[in-house]
Amino acid sequence: MNSRIFTRNSSPLIILSLVLLIPVLITITSAEVTELNVTPEVVLPGETLLVSGKASPGEEVWLNSSFEIALPVSEGAYRGEFNGIEIPAGEKKFSVTAERIKTIRLSIYPIFWRTIEYPLEGPKNATNGTATISISFPATWGGITIDIYGKKTVGVYGDAADNAKSVNLTTDMSIKVTADSTGDFELPINTEGIPSGEFLITAGEKEKRVYIVAPEPEPSVFDTGSPEKPYPSISGIHSGTITPNHTITVSKLSTYPCSGTGGHIEYIKLGNTTGWNVTAMWDGYAGDWHTITFGEPFTLYAGSTYNYTIITGSYPQIHHTDALLTANGWINCTSFVDANGKRYCNWIPAITLHSRR
């Protein structure tokens, strides 16, 4: 069967839409796996695991990975966002199951330079509070084969069940590999975008557990802390002031993201009335993606007031107040203009200034 290569001016979205309407019919059978290894078994987010093992020579082996996460409910809705998820080329099946919900929908970006939402016709309704969405690739329609691979941002969202405080989310990815002539198989798995916690990997009747642990926190010199109620949240432009109560040296700025999202700061400018200022920009969803590093360390002096302009992306945690007293001094909101153009005067982003590079 022929596979065709699309150009930017062709109509791949039409074909993809038709492909996604075809039900997932892949049956995953258990291979006779005699050995399964995962190295290392404890990793930091974004590090790569090597999954290897033994099966019969030339046998097709499905490697299955899964993790679970609880998503908070805000105003009757839930949302999770997993950034930089590495999707390998080749045969695979991706599924998401949510519990304590009314509806569910997925978004994947980028696909042909834009975001695709699935199901295409709208959110899927839950049965008895539970729903599962499954997608498999490559898929063929009309002689055209489409595969999705590379780094993607995957979103899961919908309406929660009545009175639900959180939603249980289970994600599963199954990837097919083929054992070589000696029965050996291996697959590297990048853990970027996967939340901290337990990560289960299975093949045949074998299973291994991997633990993704958050890195040790860096020393903070000005920390707003995480608010008790971080929602509502939206991206936008924050303006305000910071007045430290002791002299601090700053080299990094990190953001508290809302649970299950990619909340981050894309740009910051700090300055004062003398004309001094410093700026820094986000490097994207790679590595420690919720942290911005300044070009050179700088000093903020006790009792001096500094103006800030902060541009946020996705869903950062928000302190809903116009002034916040921290252990390190004051941070105040002058204005916040959200992505829809609405203006507020009581939104302060939850941030930490760090001293160590």
Rank of each mutant, 00 (worst) to 15 (best):
T309D: 12
E192C: 14
T97K: 07
I268M: 02
N168G: 13
P72L: 10
H319P: 00
R8E: 15
N125H: 08
L200N: 13
I310E: 00
E266Q: 13
F185M: 06
I148N: 09
S95E: 15
K229S: 11
S11C: 15
W289S: 06
L253W: 04
A164K: 12
T182S: 14
P219S: 13
L13V: 12
V167L: 05
T321K: 11
G46A: 02
S17D: 12
C333R: 03
T29F: 12
T243P: 04
T103F: 14
L50R: 13
S335K: 11
P349D: 04
A286Y: 13
S355F: 00
G155C: 09
A160R: 01
E266G: 13
W276P: 07
S233K: 03
G313E: 04
W141A: 04
H264Y: 11
D147C: 13
W289V: 03
T191A: 03
I237L: 13
I22M: 10
S136M: 05
P45I: 04
T274M: 02
W282I: 04
S174E: 05
G263F: 03
P12H: 12
K206V: 02
G236R: 00
T127K: 10
A286G: 11
E99S: 11
W282Q: 03
T29C: 07
I311E: 13
N64T: 13
N190L: 13
T312L: 05
D223M: 03
N168L: 14
S235R: 09
T127Y: 08
T103H: 14
L49T: 03
S226P: 01
F6K: 07
I15P: 04
P40R: 07
S95V: 09
K152M: 05
G158Q: 08
S304Q: 06
L187Y: 09
C333W: 03
S174P: 05
E228A: 14
